[in-house]
Amino acid sequence: MYSAFQTALRLVYPPRCTLCGTQVESEFGLCGPCWRDTPFISGLSCDACGVPLPGDDAGTPEFCDDCLTIARPWSKGCAALIYRDNGRNLVLALKHGDRHDIVRPAALWMANAARPLVDDQMIVAPVPLHWTRMIRRRFNQSALLARAVARKLDLSWCPDLLVRPKRTRPLDGLGRDARFETLQGMIEPHRRRRQYMMDRSVLLVDDVMTSGATLSAAAQACFRGGATDVRVVTLARAAKDA
């Protein structure tokens, strides 16, 4: 009965490409041209942030220029897409266009990228929003991604493991140093959630990494909450040559 219902539903509402709306074979997928034009990250990449690197993978940790010059408080990181073209379009559609349907394929891509970073006792947590921004936006896109990624990886997750008690000015237009200065100490472990990260590793989830200032503040908060290790995964990574 359920299978027949699904078949009928697909006839009335055929699956559409997440980006362009063209009819596709499976739900929450991309058509051939959109898949081709989406900048998925593959091959050699920075072990700390996931940005693509030139050369072949020799099986040893490699780092981009940013991660060689900036102390990253997390141990490993990755991203599914480069933040340009369709990668940028997907992030902005989710963040500002209320396109929650993007979460499902995005979480699959992120989970595939993050699988080598995972351990069985890990807890997944999103980068938090200040409550005033949450009210204005109505949802935290990082929390939506974190929940879906946790399900894909069969891990526990906590939507409010971290909090932002103070509102900060927007980071758009700020340089790298200004971003880090603005976010310093602005994210804290939730007082009533510390037990969930105590003596455990944390997988931090965000939609996009630019300078890494927000993830840095969040990772430091995890360690203050008792985490033993922090790793990060983002849907997209901004790259200088993107």
Rank of each mutant, 00 (worst) to 15 (best):
residue 3 S to L: 14
residue 4 A to K: 04
residue 4 A to M: 09
residue 4 A to Y: 15
residue 6 Q to N: 07
residue 7 T to R: 15
residue 9 L to W: 13
residue 11 L to T: 08
residue 13 Y to R: 12
residue 13 Y to V: 10
residue 13 Y to L: 15
residue 13 Y to S: 10
residue 14 P to G: 10
residue 17 C to W: 00
residue 20 C to E: 03
residue 20 C to M: 12
residue 21 G to Y: 07
residue 24 V to T: 13
residue 25 E to T: 14
residue 27 E to Q: 14
residue 28 F to T: 04
residue 28 F to R: 09
residue 29 G to L: 04
residue 30 L to M: 13
residue 31 C to H: 05
residue 33 P to Y: 03
residue 35 W to E: 08
residue 37 D to M: 08
residue 38 T to K: 02
residue 39 P to C: 10
residue 41 I to V: 13
residue 44 L to K: 14
residue 44 L to W: 14
residue 46 C to A: 02
residue 48 A to T: 13
residue 49 C to S: 09
residue 51 V to C: 10
residue 52 P to Q: 12
residue 52 P to F: 14
residue 55 G to V: 13
residue 59 G to M: 07
residue 59 G to E: 04
residue 61 P to D: 09
residue 61 P to Q: 04
residue 62 E to W: 06
residue 65 D to I: 15
residue 65 D to A: 15
residue 67 C to A: 08
residue 67 C to Q: 11
residue 67 C to G: 05
residue 70 I to P: 01
residue 70 I to N: 01
residue 71 A to V: 03
residue 72 R to S: 10
residue 72 R to V: 09
residue 73 P to G: 03
residue 78 C to S: 13
residue 79 A to D: 06
residue 79 A to E: 05
residue 85 D to S: 15
residue 87 G to R: 07
residue 87 G to S: 12
residue 87 G to E: 03
residue 88 R to C: 06
residue 88 R to Y: 00
residue 89 N to G: 03
residue 90 L to T: 06
residue 93 A to V: 03
residue 93 A to F: 00
residue 97 G to F: 04
residue 98 D to E: 12
residue 99 R to I: 04
residue 102 I to Q: 02
residue 105 P to Y: 00
residue 105 P to R: 07
residue 109 W to R: 02
residue 109 W to L: 14
residue 112 N to D: 14
residue 113 A to D: 03
residue 116 P to W: 09
residue 118 V to P: 05
residue 120 D to G: 09
residue 121 Q to S: 14
residue 124 V to H: 07
residue 124 V to R: 05
residue 124 V to P: 09
residue 130 H to T: 11
residue 131 W to R: 14
residue 131 W to E: 10
residue 132 T to E: 09
residue 134 M to A: 09
residue 138 R to F: 00
residue 139 F to H: 13
residue 143 A to S: 14
residue 144 L to C: 08
residue 145 L to S: 01
residue 145 L to D: 03
residue 146 A to R: 04
residue 147 R to N: 08
residue 149 V to G: 01
residue 151 R to M: 10
residue 153 L to H: 01
residue 153 L to Y: 06
residue 155 L to Y: 06
residue 156 S to V: 00
residue 163 V to A: 11
residue 163 V to R: 12
residue 165 P to M: 12
residue 168 T to V: 11
residue 169 R to E: 15
residue 169 R to D: 09
residue 172 D to C: 07
residue 173 G to Y: 03
residue 176 R to C: 12
residue 176 R to I: 14
residue 181 E to A: 14
residue 182 T to P: 05
residue 184 Q to G: 00
residue 188 E to H: 14
residue 189 P to A: 10
residue 192 R to Q: 15
residue 194 R to S: 10
residue 195 Q to V: 00
residue 196 Y to P: 00
residue 198 M to R: 15
residue 198 M to C: 12
residue 203 L to C: 00
residue 204 L to K: 02
residue 205 V to L: 04
residue 206 D to T: 02
residue 206 D to Y: 06
residue 207 D to H: 11
residue 207 D to K: 11
residue 213 A to L: 07
residue 213 A to W: 00
residue 216 S to H: 07
residue 216 S to T: 15
residue 217 A to K: 06
residue 219 A to F: 01
residue 224 R to I: 00
residue 225 G to Y: 08
residue 230 V to E: 03
residue 235 L to P: 00
residue 238 A to M: 09
